[in-house]
Write a protein that binds this DNA or RNA. Structure first.
Length: 461
RNA sequence: GGCGGGUUGGCGGAGAGGUUACGCAGCGGAUUGCAAAUCCGUGUAGACCGGUUCGAUUCCGGUACCCGCCUCCA
């Protein structure tokens, strides 16, 4: 059995990956809050852990991996959008408008992530479908003394979980010293976080033992991962910015509610995507969406390639230059592999690189060294590149240039005699300006439409 | 203030305690009427200062700078 090694944030070490049950390897990735188009930063964990999903399927078999990625469809930004639509006169109840907004956003998300070549997870639970499970879990935490109700809120009692802070390497006292926590009168301790909060008439809400309200953000991942993957599962992944407080809180909730389980055994965190050296973030306002790039003509496969050129554990700067280089490389490889059946298996160097903590940059380096196109295609596909369904963008434009080729050849033959090459060069320049690649050799003239081919510029030649 | 990550040749970016990373660009050559494409060849890299070692860019310690988390965020 191929050994996969992964950097486990929980232990801060690169460890051999040993699944609880090789017949059902289980992975959970924190998914998007569906209030708007996914920005480019949202796409990094999707692509990175898609490669992990593919690798796990390769090693354990396609039917032996369960990959869960949630949709957070309870969120104040969604509520705000729906409320704004309602106030603008949109028909339907607030709940219906919220549903419509999240349905719309999920559709966008799927389209955008599909364009990046990400496989759909095995399951994509929506938070609103698990409210009952969350309420039960919260009630259980209250029962066990790990949570308390105050004024319609339910709060997790951080001091009741001695391991709190282990994942992110901080202590409760240090964090309080940092004094960046929301102080609220109903909290026993400033670090306590919300499991349930009351909803007024303008907000979506569900009936609960604590009145009509809605869940806090962290509880959904604990409830859904437990429902779909059990009290112990293999991998929990997400962006490094979720390490604290989101994942810390998930661990606290899950381990206190299900002390019989271990929750997630391997924690994987990807570093942030940057743009011009800064993190892409909503508060900085420097973010753009995946759709923005796709609309600008940058193929999803190119975005994917750029992502995978940097190890997931390092910050990655998005630049136009990288995209251009990636596009050139992919064009070359696609031309090389056109019409070729992939080899039965990927190159061992590529598999070895991926098994070494998902070294996608190393894997791409190995791809450059593969001489056999069939092996190249098979190996690239393990990374989700050179897939059959993604390559239309790289196909040469259809054009019949045989008349022009004949004309150029004729001019050239004449020029050989007269030694006046000006007419040949004039036609050649015009062709190049129209995006045609001109190849002249002793054997003859060949014209190939290139990436920037523009048939309109050929008129009159 | 607390916690964490980073710093490699013109650019991007890996691995390995001692031998060419790789890609792109550049340069030289083959080829071409000239080019393009292709092929061949080509790099004075490892932030700084110490330490361990026969030997460190690779391990350890410190310094500087950059970045992230601690607040919605992937």
């Amino acid at each position: 059995m191929t050994e996969i090694r992964l950097t486990n944030t929980r232990t801060r070490k690169k460890e051999a990956f040993v699944p609880i049950d090789p017949a059902n390897v289980r992975m959970y990735l924190c998914g998007p809050t569906v209030y708007d188009r996914a920005h480019l930063g949202n796409a990094r964990p999707v692509v990175v852990f898609d490669v992990l999903f593919r690798l796990l399927r390769h090693v354990y078999g396609p039917d032996h991996v369960t990959y869960v990625r949630n949709f957070t469809d309870v969120d104040d930004k969604i509520n705000a959008t729906a409320l704004a639509r309602k106030e603008a006169g949109a028909p339907g109840t607030l709940e219906e408008l919220i549903r419509a907004r999240t349905e719309e956003t999920i559709g966008w998300y799927h389209a955008d992530m599909d364009a990046l070549g990400a496989l759909r997870p095995t399951q994509e639970p929506r938070a609103t479908d698990y409210i009952g499970a969350m309420i039960s879990m919260i009630a259980d935490l209250v029962e066990k003394g790990h949570a308390y109700a105050r004024d319609g809120h339910v709060l997790f009692r951080v001091r009741s979980y001695t391991e709190y802070g282990a994942l992110s390497g901080r202590s409760v006292d240090d964090m309080i010293a940092g004094a960046r926590v929301e102080v609220a009168p109903f909290k026993e301790d400033p670090m306590d976080f919300v499991l349930w909060k009351p909803s007024d008439a303008d907000l979506p809400g569900w009936d609960s033992p604590w009145g009509r309200g809605r869940p806090g953000w962290h509880i959904e991942c604990s409830a859904m991962s437990h429902a779909l993957l059990g009290a112990s599962f293999d991998i929990h992944a997400g962006g490094i910015d979720l390490q604290f407080p989101h994942h810390e809180n998930e661990i606290a909730q899950s381990c206190c509610a299900h002390p019989e389980g271990q929750f997630a055994r391997y924690w994987l965190h990807n570093e942030m995507l940057q743009v011009e050296g800064k993190k892409m973030s909503k508060s900085l306002g420097n973010f753009f969406t995946v759709r923005d790039l796709l609309d600008r003509g940058i193929p999803g496969e190119v975005i994917r390639f750029v992502f995978l050129q940097t190890h997931y554990g390092k910050p990655m700067d998005w630049t136009a230059e990288k995209a251009a280089q990636a596009e050139a490389t992919l064009r070359k490889w696609r031309a090389l592999g056109a019409g070729i059946d992939p080899a039965p298996s990927a190159a061992p160097e590529v598999i070895a690189a991926l098994c070494d903590d998902l070294n996608t940059a190393g894997a791409i380096a190995a791809l450059h060294r593969i001489a056999d196109p069939a092996v190249l295609v098979a190996s690239a596909r393990l990374l989700g590149l050179l897939e059959a369904g993604m390559g239309d963008w790289a196909a040469a434009p259809e054009a019949d240039l045989s008349d022009l080729a004949a004309k150029l050849a004729d001019l050239r033959v004449k020029a050989m005699d007269t030694k006046d090459f000006a007419p040949v060069d004039a036609l050649k320049s015009a062709l190049v300006a129209a995006g045609v690649e001109v190849r002249m050799s002793k054997a003859g003239v060949e014209l190939l439409p290139g990436p920037n081919f523009d048939a309109a510029k050929l008129e009159g030649l």
